[in-house]
Design a protein around this nucleic acid. Structure first.
Lengths: 405, 405
DNA sequence: CATCATTCGTCCATAATCTGGACTAATAAA
DNA sequence: TTTATTAGTCCAGATTATGGACGAATGATG
């Protein structure tokens, strides 16, 4: 029957407990040993011992004094050491590359995004360019006295995480690209092995840790850039499915027999609600992504049109919102999330798209359950995935500090 | 950040390890201490100590001798004690009530199903009838020398597991029925608290432990009786969603503006692929369920028609299969299961429905991922949920034997 | 200003649990 | 009969959390 816990020896017990204490320090930032004992259920002695190990590893440090009660001896403030360990987040997307460094205290220490049309280029060339971005990020980190413990790359496609393979990325035109190996070769070795994950999954985690998801535990995050994916977060963890392909919203069939998609199917959601489809429907011939750094130029052109009240643009966005909303209705019926978060391009487009999304969502779901989950707009927009990637490195450390000795 | 593991004290360490050893005994049935040491990674000493505790609790026992290698002293065969602890499974469905008792060795010791149209009846009355069924089951168990440790009830609707409330069961016509309290009152107190779960979730678990799912770890199980639900199993665990409503397939909209559903919506899958809808489309006026014990009489009438090659019946089943298949395509895109299992009424109907299901499934999914998950037919058909309910009791014990001292 | 109650953190003896090597038992092969 | 091999137990040792005692630091009280 089901049993996911392996044998627990003394060493493993301690490793877990280190994680428990560190997680509590992260959650309650300047906190005394006595309060940590309350929070965790350990004795003060045990808390002190565990903290000593964490301090040796450079993960926490004592700050000033804190007075919690009215009388009594003040406690020593224990905080996360934000000047020691950091995580490196990287992202390859269809029209840009990105890198960021975040320290254990969750401050963004470095962030860099370069527009680049990666559609035609080979995986080797793109990863080479990403490696240069990573080098800059690492240099910036060491300059600030940080030690980068690990890296995670966000990729827009289906990937085989075990073998480090990007199996299919229809929007990049890549098939079976050995992204993992290439990246490992391009990067200096870090303490933790470089890992990769789906862009949509990491965007959802970015939202969870740095955006609207902070208060949420269970939600679905729609991350639409060129493609459309969903990151499903349940109880603070990403739901990946059997092969890691869960949440592939972009290729839901919303219009049987509709436009041909890069994936080979017809009438996929991306062909109605993807960035290019929206721009085309709005009458904006697509410009090359390099025309603007950071955000895509044509997207801001679309927003200008929308702000001016252009009917054709509004119709395109409304139609996209409806298609997305009815797809999300299926998601809600199946996964029962607490909240739906609109990210990616849907975040800036929300003022115009959201009503349509909510309408279609309410129509297709909620009849049985009684309530429709609220639709929230991400404040991070396109930047969520890199942040999530860097955050994932830190999350792993917090969950199991023993990874760093 | 995410950390689901609480503090680990010595006692908790031992409890987990008891579960690890017991799970390995269950998996490899007659097994020696030495091999258990290999399997778990513990020393032989530790295995012996843990087994002593499990034996005291009546969960395992020593059998004869086993010779594993070519030479050397033979080992003592340790097996699960199938004559001690058992689990009670109960089920309330629209047209029947069921109960079963399964021992730790996974043998079904008692099984009883009574046809009963529960549609008009009050929750109190139905639960009263179920309690009588449970009493018979308990009597049968004690007669066989078994101690029933706990019970789980399968219910066809959305439920609030924490408050023990059946929130909505459109096919029964119940709203906010305090099923949990009623049941606890009707049953003698057991060692573990009586619990309840969705019929679809438990059917999936039944399939996992007693049916086609044995070899599978990740699958989606469609359990269609009157309503249509899906149980999502990931890594041997049911995926429930934020509020426990995940997998509600029956109210996917497959025909916008279609027939009115009991849930209040229009064009729900149940209105096309539900048992009553199929029978109606096949020209069979629905008979009362009490006309046959065990299986629904009209369903076997439908099968007779199908076997005779009746065109109208075939068209009805094909249409249902197509609707189900296109809904399953969404499921596959979102959840990425390894396999799709057809259970409930779709199990006997599979010879006629399966091609349509597979066609629609292949059409809507698989374009991106390259492969469509295989569609497997359950051998348990309607009985899966009760089995899963009883199995869940046993699964909890195996995962944490400390529950029984 | 001295005293007291209170709270914080550490020290130390104790208890629980797993490990690892030594030892006995039982079997097949030589 | 002897030897090699494997199974299971025993016992000392190591690791880790516990719990009470104790000193330290602070506000309240008189």
């Amino acid at each position: 029957m089901s049993n996911n816990a392996g044998p627990v020896r003394h060493a493993r017990m301690r490793e877990r407990n280190l994680g428990v204490v560190l997680a509590e320090v992260v959650r309650h930032q300047p906190v005394t040993r006595a309060r940590l004992a309350d929070l965790t259920g350990f004795t003060k002695t045990t808390v002190s011992n565990l903290l000593a190990v964490l301090a040796d590893a450079g993960l926490v440090r004592d700050g000033g004094l804190v007075h919690e009660g009215e009388r009594g001896r003040p406690g020593v403030a224990v905080s996360v050491d934000g000047d020691g360990t950091a995580g490196l987040g990287l992202e390859i997307n269809v029209d840009y590359l990105a890198a960021c460094v975040i320290d254990l205290g969750r401050r963004v220490r470095h962030r860099h995004l370069v527009a680049a049309d990666n559609r035609g280029r080979s995986a080797e060339a793109v990863i080479e360019a990403l490696a240069r971005l990573a080098e800059q990020a690492l240099a910036s980190a060491t300059e600030q006295g940080l030690i980068v413990a690990g890296a995670v790359v966000a990729l827009p496609g289906l990937l085989d995480r075990e073998r480090g393979l990007l199996r299919r990325a229809p929007n990049l035109g890549w098939t079976d690209a050995p992204a993992g190996d290439l990246l490992r070769a391009g990067l200096p070795p870090l303490r933790l092995p470089a890992d990769q994950d789906n862009e949509a999954n990491l965007a959802a985690l970015g939202e969870l840790w740095f955006g609207a998801g902070r208060q949420l535990g269970d939600f679905v995050h729609v991350s639409g850039e060129i493609g459309i994916g969903a990151g499903i977060v349940v109880d603070g963890q990403v739901f990946r499915g059997a092969h890691g392909y869960a949440g592939e919203l972009g290729h839901f069939v919303v219009e049987p027999g509709g436009a041909l998609c890069a994936c080979g199917g017809r009438g996929c959601l991306e062909q109605t609600a993807g960035q290019e489809a929206i721009l085309r429907a709005a009458g904006l011939t697509e410009l090359t992504a390099t025309s603007a750094a950071g955000t895509d130029g044509s997207l801001s052109a679309l927003i200008t049109l929308l702000e001016a009240g252009d009917a054709r643009a509004l119709a395109a966005v409304t139609r996209a919102g409806e298609a997305l909303g009815s797809t999300l209705a299926s998601v809600v019926n199946l996964l029962d999330p607490d909240t739906v978060v609109l990210g990616g391009i849907f975040s800036p487009l929300a003022p115009w798209a959201r009503p349509a999304v909510e309408r279609a969502l309410a129509e297709g779901s909620g009849t049985l359950r009684g309530s429709v989950p609220p639709v929230v707009v991400s404040g991070l927009a396109g930047g969520a995935a890199v942040l999530g990637a860097a955050g994932l490195v830190l999350d792993r450390i917090v969950a199991d500090p023993a990874l760093l000795l």
